[in-house]
Design a protein around this nucleic acid. Structure first.
Lengths: 334, 334
DNA sequence: TTGAAAGCGGTACCAC
DNA sequence: GTGGTACCGCTTTCAA
């Protein structure tokens, strides 16, 4: 291990000078600086990051909690987070929780032990264990895409209510009156907001919402497949199926096509998220584009402010969305 | 900041005892231990991870370098890495390089500054800068899925040559003789191995390989679309198109279907990777399943051994693959 | 401009 | 079984 002491001896100066030459060159004589740099090079010296960090008390790392990594939408967000973190000089500690609260707790406790300075939560649960609850009062935490339930932390998300309305308005304008819904986890805020948005349009149009037309409980391809099976058993077969993300929608599309049901002639399908592959299935999915990458970047911006104890101008940021009308939706069959 | 000193005062013992009570409880009297635990609790004390790490000289973190995060195949590997790391008590620092050598260097240099103890490379380049080259001689490094070019590091991968043969044998057995190939980056070992495997079957069968039938240079959906356009211009239209990953294959499938070309009746399509959604497109893709999650876990196992200076039983692990014959491939049209 | 030395928060050896 | 203390590697104040 080549440490600062070796370098200082090699250069014939004190450790203090070496430290300064590297971190605050302007404070040290040009001649000495060169000597030091020379020694650094020949010794192959790298400052020990751990040691610097103990001093500063900052790890310059952030933890990102994500329920799973297979959802490409999350990955896009993480990509944004990674980029943002890089630009701000932070490293990203990846925390794949698989939805397990225990794992969340473990990762979250990194903040309490100085292993990380801040946390970005992509799920909706409060990541700290009860034991850590009071310790975590003043911890930098931002939630993306979901609000942390029951807690008042800043969040970045899109206007899911409005997005739900947009999807539903689109379908209603095509004359649809019978709907099916295939949802993800019911516990998430996203689910409630999107559904509420859709329902609001329905009630404006005087269309009834049937509880039985709402199926599914996970954001998965299989959920789409199973959801379709259930919906097709309903007495009144829907002419449009709203899926709560693109994976579900692609699963639904697959199953319907397999059964010889034509999209969008017989049934229209819509998704959410605008996952990359959703534009390359047959037919391409009508969906809502979410600025996932930007959400990630913004989250870091906010988190960095919190970590630097700067004042936040606002606690919530709601990013714009865009309805992408592609070919999986069309006029209602009559 | 509540530190070990505060706790020791609160408990009326020395800092040494507090440290022992927490890390080596058996060495301390039950009575004292309880006193300490009590104090720890009331003080809300968490050992400073940074401080422990300076002492031990180990960060218990590993860096994972990945060219991008949108490829679900990579994500699956990372999921495996994350799981493995967790089990071994390591944290994962995510390094999204976007293929930029500069970023790779930055992340790789974390090893040199004690910020991380080991590195897993998912790309094929040697991540250290020239300046760091000699420093990096004895650094724990494992490559997954690609071999690090020109260097002798352990790697985990699947037998791409054999997989290429399997795909080609499958197609040849259906009577195909005219092939198209849509590839990813030509610089990767994977590309060469898969192609070589395919070619070996062709030559055994006495089928000519036409250079013009090989197109594409990135693992992207669009590559599939563009690749198809190119291939269809060939004087002898292929009856089977081998795509070098599932994203390319899905792009190809999309474009062919859009043109009213029937899969697999007119043209057969094959992929690689068995990405989740590849089983849910129409028709479901014939592809090669790679144990991505396991690859990730294995990589960590190997890396951990290296970090602990244990002897490696072998430098390369080649995981089994499985040909999934689904509906995108079938008899050649005559 | 430079060096000596006191920390940062823990750990672990040595003595009692 | 427990306490004193040196030390991990670096930073930073203070004095020269």
């Amino acid at each position: 291990m080549t440490n600062i002491k070796k370098v200082s001896e090699l250069a014939g100066v004190s450790t203090a000078t070496v430290s300064r030459a590297l971190k605050n060159p302007s404070l040290v004589n040009v001649k000495t600086r060169e000597k030091v740099m020379e020694a650094v090079k020949t010794a192959g010296y790298r400052p020990n990051w751990l040691a610097s960090s103990v001093k500063s008390g900052k790890s310059n790392s952030i933890v990102v909690l994500v329920p799973n990594l297979v959802n490409p939408f999350f990955m896009r967000i993480i990509e944004g987070i990674e980029k943002g973190a890089q630009e701000h000089g932070y490293s990203v500690l990846l925390g794949d929780t698989q939805g397990e609260h225990k794992r969340e707790n473990e990762y979250a406790s990194m903040l309490l032990s100085n292993r990380a300075d801040g946390l970005i939560q992509l799920d909706h649960s409060f990541p700290f264990s009860e034991a850590d609850e009071d310790l975590s009062k003043n911890v930098p935490l931002v939630s993306v895409c979901e609000r942390v339930t029951g807690k008042d932390y800043p969040y970045i998300e899109l206007d899911n209510y409005a997005a739900g309305r947009a999807i539903m308005n689109h379908l209603v304008s095509y004359g649809h009156e019978k709907f099916g819904f295939i949802a993800g986890q019911r516990s998430s805020q996203i689910f409630h907001d999107r559904l509420a948005g859709m329902k609001s349009v329905l009630s404006e149009e005087g269309i009834n919402f049937e509880e039985s037309s709402l199926v599914g409980e996970s954001y998965d391809l299989d959920t789409g497949v199973e959801g379709v099976k259930e919906l097709l058993k309903l007495p009144h077969r829907p002419t449009a199926i709203c899926c709560f993300n693109d994976d579900i929608a692609m699963g639904a599309l697959f199953e319907l096509t397999r059964r010889g049901i034509s999209i969008p002639k017989d049934i229209s399908i819509t998704g959410f998220d605008n996952v990359r592959v959703s534009g390359y299935v047959n037919p391409p999915l009508t969906t809502v584009d979410q600025p996932a990458f930007d959400m990630g970047k913004r989250a870091v911006d906010v988190l960095v402010k919190m970590m630097k104890n700067e004042e936040l101008t606002r606690k919530r940021e709601i990013l714009p969305f865009q309805l992408l009308e592609r070919e999986s939706s069309g006029p209602a069959k009559r």
